[in-house]
Design a protein around this nucleic acid. Sequence first.
RNA 1: GCCCCCGUAGCUCAGCGGACAGAGCAGCAGACUUCUAAUCUGACGGUCGCAGGUUCGAUUCCUGCCGGGGGCGCCA
Length: 559
Amino acid sequence: MIKDDLISLVRQATQAAQTAGDLPAFDLPAVVVDHPKNPEHGDYATNIALQSARAARLAPLRIAEQIVKHWPPADFVGRVSVAPPGFINIALDDRWLAHQVAVIQANPATYGNSNAGCGRKAQVEFVSANPTGPLTIGHAWGAVLGDTIANLLTATGWDVTREYYFNNGGRQMRLLGESLQVRCLELLGDRRPIPPDGYRGDYLRWVAATLYAEYGDALAEKDVDFFRNKAVDAIFANIRSTLDRLGIRFDVYYNELDLYYNGKIEAAVKALANSGYAYEKDGAVWLRATELGLKQDRVIIKSSGEPTYRMPDIAYHVDKLERGFEYIVDIFGADHHATWPDVLAGVRALGYNTDGIKVILHQFITLMREGQEVKMSTRRGEFVTIDELLDDITTEAIPGKDVMRFMLLTRSPDSPMTFDMDLAVKQSSENPVYYVQYGHARICSILRKAAEEGFTPEAYADGDLSLLTHPSELALLRRMVALPEVIATAAEQLAPHQLSGYATDLATQFHLFYRDCRVLSSDPADRELTKARLRLCDAARIVLARTLGLMGVSAPERM
RNA sequence: GCCCCCGUAGCUCAGCGGACAGAGCAGCAGACUUCUAAUCUGACGGUCGCAGGUUCGAUUCCUGCCGGGGGCGCCA
């Protein structure tokens, strides 16, 4: 990667200057290379001279000058210069930049990928909603974050498993079954109230109608288990279909109940008891979380003998580790912030290292409709489903998931977001996602037109890239070659929202190139330049499509 | 009371300790006989919540305060 190469060049240059006696001996601090905000300062900059000033007992400018003087040659580096108060600015070489088109064209499916993961096993757990109702806007963010993080990890060399953890037993589920039973009996003319804390959403009416069509009056004889199972089946079918619309497919659906059946919870309880990290008090079993660095101890087995939610969660994470996942990413809503430290503490108490487990908490989405905040509750049946929203923002040309995914990937998960439905629907034609997709469609249009005029991919394959010297061509190339770094950083920081900003920048640079540089020309004198620019267009298309692909957003060829 | 997140342009939000703080939308003024105007150009718009501290240098790190959201169960 460019940045890493530059860091090593800075080190080499500094050592060379020291060996030559142009700089005194001093310990080099960690070299930081980043992008200056002002493009006039070049593509990269390092503050190494400023940081070293004290240790070297020299003015930063003097240090910078000596480092530049001893800068080793490198094909990708153009101008290296010093700027007050002591920055070293580095520009990429124009010829090298132009040549990257060939590199990109040679690797259309993998350009930008790296191998930080070295094929090791990673797991991303997300959505994990219990099947009590349809997926709502509240689930959308975690869904998109998880899937995109999984894409990023795959692109950086991890062997990724997408996993959905759920529980279809327990009190919640019994209430669900009872609620469906009430809806079914309603259809038979037997009116009863929905139990307190039951599920009042209309979706159970639809399930009831389906069941009535199949079973008719026989429904009167069925027990709660029957209704619970039917409700779970129907709701899961709905959830899967919603996920499918979002472009999300899980590798594993993991049922919490299995942890009871296969004895893993019991085993974890025993192990905790033996570890000394569990003790009895008030008839319950407590986890000695305070011994593990937390504020208070927590109940893991209630006095009724039932485990609390922490127990299966602990056993589940142990199971993840035992399945060989070296990197585990959990995506939760902000309401889980107080719970996961307990769970990880339990895992540690069992002797496992939890360093490989990362938790991403996203804030909540406040939904606004007609200027009013919509308070959502699955139990009360008050919510806006992902399906409904997708229906609203889908157009003839573009599926709603593109808008939703892109939108949710423009914000940091840390930032609470308000989602104005009226605005989302109304402004959908001015949504940034269309800006990026339009850039892709525009390129495809040029390439189509070119082919009609005889410039097929084969015909322009030998285009001379050294002809790409226009400032707008170079600006576009600069954004394109940043993809490997963007992917690496977004993956490492588990910050998929960085992709949307990059995609927008890239599209902007293409639109500016399009404005400034005519690609197709009927003048035979322009033939070679046209071929070079077609190669550039093709490479830009590849990079744009890869970026959109990582976000799970489609790259349309026409709009 | 304690814990987590947020407070940046009218609105929604980017911004990895650096060099004059950015984008989109809204609003204003312009550009289609030319490869897609879902585009482009220009102007406008900001005491980066407040106050201290660390640093050569702070929107960024630390502390306190003020606002907003979410948590602090033998619910999940």
